[in-house]
Design a binder for these strands. Structure first.
Lengths: 404, 404
DNA sequence: GCGGCTTGGTTAATTAACAGAACTAACCCA
DNA sequence: TGGGTTAGTTCTGTTAATTAACCAAGCCGC
């Protein structure tokens, strides 16, 4: 978990040095083209301190110098940028319909990606499969030249904070799987950071962290697919994912929207997932698990039954969003997951309800931005890669040292 | 907002010194009786660093030395404690039924308290009234001898982060009131920290921060009174209150529990408050606003109508708690507010539903502790005082300097 | 085009914080 | 009573930020 202070919250001189290097790096990452002088004023450090810090970050290939900036009467400063050529980040997602993996540059650009179809199977087979694909990815021309900072894995289930065990993945049929350890058995490389997180939380982190321009204070990612989950990222300048004690934060699919409603697979009644989710829509419209939901519905989208079902589901989704707004009140909401491909039939009722209701309480017209991702295929994998970067940035000198 | 790093997340030597002093102080606060050697090992600082830090904190009366500890073969260490005699913290709550204020010691012990009955009125009258009462409190024998670190105010409505404006307080009939500024006009003293926060968020902070023994990683306070609100505190070792962009985090009373249900005063339908809250229970049972809810119900508690009403409300409360569990998953839940006085008729249905449902998802028997506060009269005021302490602790040397 | 003016960035000496080792203090135990 | 052990301090050393001087590189007005 990225944190700007060490575990015990006290620090020595080395910690201070690290802190300042991270701060410089993070500032340049967020505002590409800053000069040393800009950094000094914004970070309230002296020119000298920034100078040596930048020098070290240049030497370690974290930064590159760009052109001279326009002068405003004095000597022009030299623009600094994240060195987008030297390092690579690897992210992967274990999903219900297969494995997805990406290699990213420090700016979050995807260097290489791969989608491997794989129906739910045992953790061992999955790990072996993933290890093979990752090895190919690592050896590929886009990555092989770069220094790999680490690997992040996104999985469809809750993970308790500080743990590497996937507690439950109903859609994979897994329970208490130490997936990261398993993967490590089959995959020696890369060295560096290894981490695993819930799919929606990884996605949320990536959507916030790899944002170009102003980074919002907080962001909620709602992942609407076979199940429904969410991830909340908060904190400036060091965003952190909210997990909860048992890793259950964001299990919004099991939030009750209809007391006494239908039974959910979790055993409770009236969960949000009984109203919106891949599996309820499938159940309501008689679509088999093996079929692609979008393809199965494409031809029937204008059927009355389909329309009614999706509208009902959309309204529930809108209610869910409103509840999250009044519980967590994020700066921004991003809606992804396979259900967004169903388009306006599902989303329009959700959005119109949410837009109409969200400001009733304060009576203001300040709307929370809500963005919909139509193709969220690689979002979670990229988010896991972002988490690797966030870790690495906290000790930028470490990557060139012997052990991380 | 207490944060261990400065705003720009870079630091100089002075920052490092402050950080380490805070860390020492916080460690002793949490584990009274630690010795210098204990601190050194836990904080990973050297004995020398801890020694000088402790010396300075002793000189500034933040700490006191206690007895020698039992030796285990070597020289016994000297126990260190928070100096509970020198400083005072002031907290106040502006509530629907009046003003409450407390003076606390650093350990959170209440030195003096006052409850002033005051029906909802204008912000100006309220501020003047509060200022007078606070002046009396400050001049009282329990406080006058002490150095006052500052004043925290808890109010029944949302406050956007970093602001001192109460955006909305439906139960007071206020909107966009700069209450802290207003109060400052009538009350010159105390110098130091001034802050204002939502009542449930202040309460949450206090319940976590003034806890004796192990402090949980996170805590959710649910305030069930005229309206329903919650506050979530997270973070170790520096707990932080979650606010949301507009300060709406924790407005759980306006979370939809019954889509298409009754109209709420906020304009939406089926809000939690239409099912559980002082005002719905009053409306359902025909109790006037002026009457004390508890007293009005005391004689009728075994009426069928009352029982039915409270049971329904209790079930809704249980659902609300479950939803919070699956959204935020706090380490611990504390339930307070005037409704807890209604006892088992309301609480038993809530708890039994929550207990039965909370572990369905993970299929484990690890329960989240849920504590009920029967008398939460001064909880929010004390919480506001705790927030003052949390601020002060981040720069323990500052209080003796000229300006804070 | 040639000095002032302004801003960017580096360098060398200084300051201030933590670190390390030696030392004293205080207790236990045999 | 002396050796072993742990607590805490002191002195010296190391490290990182700071200060101030300096050089670099543009602008501007004459």
């Amino acid at each position: 978990m990225p944190t700007s202070t060490n575990q015990h919250n006290a620090g020595n001189l080395g910690f201070l040095k690290r802190l300042n290097r991270s701060a410089i790096l993070e500032m340049v990452r967020r505002s590409p083209g800053m000069t040393r002088a800009d950094i000094a004023t914004h970070a309230r450090l002296t020119k000298a301190t920034v100078g040596t810090g930048v020098q070290s970050l240049l030497a370690r290939k974290w930064l590159t110098e760009g052109d001279l900036k326009k002068s405003s009467g004095g000597r022009p400063g030299r623009a600094l940028y994240l060195n987008d050529e030297h390092y690579a980040l690897i992210g992967a997602e274990v999903g219900v319909h297969g494995l997805r993996m990406v290699a990213c540059s420090l700016n979050g650009d995807i260097l290489d990606q791969h989608h491997e179809h794989l129906p739910p199977t045992t953790p061992e087979i999955t790990a072996r499969h993933l290890a093979e694909c990752l090895q190919t990815l690592l050896a590929g021309p886009a990555v092989a030249e770069r220094h790999c900072l680490g690997l992040g894995i996104a999985v469809p289930g809750p993970i308790a904070p500080g743990q590497t065990v996937l507690r439950l993945a109903p859609n994979l049929g897994w329970r208490d799987v130490p997936f990261l350890d398993l993967l490590q058995q089959y995959l020696p490389a890369p060295e560096g950071i290894w981490l695993m997180d819930n799919e929606a939380k990884a996605a949320a982190f990536g959507e916030l962290y790899f944002r170009t321009g102003d980074i919002p204070d907080s962001l909620l990612y709602v992942s609407a697919g076979t199940g429904i989950g969410s991830g909340l990222v908060e904190g400036n300048p060091w965003p952190v994912v909210t997990r909860g004690v048992q890793g259950l934060a964001g299990e919004i699919g099991h939030t009750i929207l209809q007391p006494g409603g239908l039974y959910c697979h979790c055993g409770n009644r009236g969960c949000a997932e009984t109203l919106v989710s891949g599996w309820t829509i499938r159940a309501a419209l008689g679509i088999a698990e093996e079929d692609d939901l979008y393809e199965a519905l494409a031809s029937r989208l204008h059927d009355d039954e389909v329309q009614r079902t999706l509208k009902r589901a959309g309204q529930a989704l809108g209610t869910l969003l409103l509840n999250l707004h009044h519980t967590q009140n994020p700066s921004e909401i991003v809606l992804g997951g396979s259900l967004t491909r169903l388009g306006p039939a599902l989303l329009e009722p959700a959005l119109s309800y949410f837009e109409a209701s969200q400001n009733r309480l304060l009576g203001i017209s300040q709307h929370i931005p809500l963005r919909i991702i139509e193709d969220s295929t690689f979002i979670a994998a990229r988010g896991a890669a972002a988490q690797v970067l966030a870790h690495a940035i906290h000790d930028p000198d470490a990557v060139n040292r012997a052990s991380l």
